[in-house]
Amino acid sequence: MKVRPSLLVETGARTMVPTLLVVSAFLLVVGHDSPGGGFVGGLLAGGALLVVFLSGGRAAVTSMLPVPAGAILGAGIMTAVATAIGGLVFGRALLDAGKLEIDAGWFGSWSVGSALLFDVGVFLVVVGLVSTVLLQLGDPEEREE
């Protein structure tokens, strides 16, 4: 299946991708209270990458990622592990959730828990995995030895 991005696909992608990314970020943040969360958010962001890949190929995905996929994975794991041992550092249990209250004026009062940070780690790992898959398995012919 040779990917031949048409103009239509490209235009579609150009409008779709930002939307998908915003929705994915939204799902990540609201996950604690309504359907969503790190997995769903990460997978949706992965879906956005898929769209990018289909329209622009590997190069487009690479240019869109700020860092290599391996670093995203590492950062995700580190974030999650850091929140996990955060509890230990503060003399509590492993993975004990902490909380930070933010009063943001007319935006309302938000409480950012370590659970959200943890979910960000999850999000990053999922994104890292999907981008690895796309970069490695997508369009394999390009890399014939």
Binding site: A71, G74, A75, I77, V81, I85, A93
Partner: peptide, 22 residues
């Protein structure tokens, strides 16, 4: 002691993360 037990799981995970980014 509970911290030590927790660390038994946490230490290798930290190593996974570090080994990926170093």
């Amino acid at each position: 002691m509970t911290t030590v037990v927790s660390l038994l799981v946490a230490v290798p995970l930290v190593a996974v993360g570090l080994a990926l980014v170093l």
